[in-house]
Design a protein around this nucleic acid. Sequence first.
DNA 1: CTGTTAGCGCCTTCAG
DNA 2: CTGAAGGCGCTAACAG
Lengths: 357, 357
Amino acid sequence: LLLNVPLRRRAVSNRITIRDVAREADVSIASVSRVLNNLDSVAESTRERVLEVAERLRYVAHEGARSLTRQQTFAIGLILPDLHGEFFSELLRGADSSARAAGYHLLVSTAHGQVDEALSAIRSMRGRVDGLLLMSPDFDAASVERHLPADLPAVFLNSHTGDAATVVAIDDYAGAVAMVRHLAASGRRRIAHISGPAANGDAAERLRGYRDSRPGDDDPLLVYPGDFSEEAGRAAGRHFAALDPRPDAIFAANDLMAAGCLQSLVECGVRVPQDIAIGGFDDVPLARFLSPPLTTMRTDVAHFARLAVERLVADMSGAADPAKVDPIMPVLVVRHSCGGHHSNQATDRVSGSPHHA
Amino acid sequence: LLLNVPLRRRAVSNRITIRDVAREADVSIASVSRVLNNLDSVAESTRERVLEVAERLRYVAHEGARSLTRQQTFAIGLILPDLHGEFFSELLRGADSSARAAGYHLLVSTAHGQVDEALSAIRSMRGRVDGLLLMSPDFDAASVERHLPADLPAVFLNSHTGDAATVVAIDDYAGAVAMVRHLAASGRRRIAHISGPAANGDAAERLRGYRDSRPGDDDPLLVYPGDFSEEAGRAAGRHFAALDPRPDAIFAANDLMAAGCLQSLVECGVRVPQDIAIGGFDDVPLARFLSPPLTTMRTDVAHFARLAVERLVADMSGAADPAKVDPIMPVLVVRHSCGGHHSNQATDRVSGSPHHA
DNA sequence: CTGTTAGCGCCTTCAG
DNA sequence: CTGAAGGCGCTAACAG
């Protein structure tokens, strides 16, 4: 009766399972499992036979299945707003190095500043990762947090969420203040700012730091609304070059805008730093290649990411130790764009507190 | 007798499964599954009830389990030699955009130029991804290929493996030739080269292109052995600045070395491009920010990665269409470092065949 | 339209 | 030291 019932669809599958190894080695799958995970005690003869067969068959364990029984995937989900530019490149590098060190893989996803994309990314991470690293400067982290599956530990990166979530953050405010003070200390009196996207938490903090510390009166014309892009920096440069009276310093909310601004100022015939000094934020690798090299706030993003991973791994290990990680204090790096005298890496003048205070 | 046997360990687990939803909604798990995947036809009333309960319980499907039954993970593994610098950043960005578009996630891993790390990465991908994107310029791709699990389609990136594997490659040789010819055409006669790591396939091809097309006789002093790092570029710059007779052009095997070289030449008092012209390879974003902006071969890495993902997705869909993808021909971008006259993006002079010939 | 029942590939008690 | 058996959470026939 059941003669021509096809034995499921695996007719032409070349998938090799633990069962194949067991059959070929003439042992039970339990024994194969033991050997492969070197557990318990297994007779040396069995052990050798299994190993031999496994190699001959090119058997590689199915990590998906293994995760299911172990209830652990050894993967960490990383949800970023974007992947553009060196900031994220560095972030990823740091996260990867630290994750690998702890035996974890990285599952990367981008949300492009859309809450729904972030939520969908989170959902699709359930059951494929043991924990989540979440960077969401473009929207309220708290609202995202509510949608986290209950069994998915998460660490927020640089989002000014309430006390509820675990957060590893950069002290944007203090960094901005430090930069503006440096500019003022070197004699600049009319300091302008190129801000980041309005909805971005980091950008908001940097703007706040600028506002609270700039010399002179509030002047709306001195704040150009940017979006972290090079093009915004160029536009800002043109704007400020034409302004009368002209600012004598510009603090850009990130390095990429500073770079764009620098280029357009030069095109407009403005001398940097003689006429206008420029300061950035992040210290991406690009910064020291500009001419003049860019004074900026160094955040060591890779290190920042490493911290976050370590924090997450601790959380996942059930180390119910919700001790807050202190915000990371950016460090001022003085280069020629503010009137410093040196340009190459070896002579960067670095000041401020180190990462671990 | 079995009264006090603890019902497995899940005593305090807050994991919510499809079964919880089914019980709460008073239907079978099959129905829940149907609703959640909107399959078949389900009574509207059932449907609503399930949806309501799922939301109330904050149920999120376990993707791991789902992958196991579906025999499909909707993830792509990406194994890279490293994560340093804009080249990989761009690669990742392109891969991500294209993978997301096809409904896939990216599982990232690095091999650091070690064969064993690459092999271990491959093993740990089995059963968590549907296909592999593999970049292994530092060692023989064929040897890696032999260790691929049989059920894991793979696409090699830029590795000059035999015809066996699917490869998406950049035409390094042709690119190098084009650059050297450009240098020669603008009157340079003594053209030097900074090569990449000896074991690196791309580097080897670029060197070969240089050798086959440079004017004048072979001169070992004109080839400085680099390793793709900025520091190597600086060292090369010092070397060539001191050489007598000095070269009048330098072709660096990648942009980062070109950047380092440029800086050290300037420090040595050599004028670029008047005394020495410089050409790079890759056209990373950094290139146009240098001063003078760098003439280079643009490969559009992001696009390259997109192609590779599309190829892989096609392979995975069983489109047994092993039509080779033509090597991507880099495009010459002329900027001021070779004597061009313009510096900003809008006026880059681009020539050569476009990516799709 | 809905529930029951096999697995997916592996790990892990529990008995031999 | 080893094998049998029961899940992990979900999907997909197959009967009702």
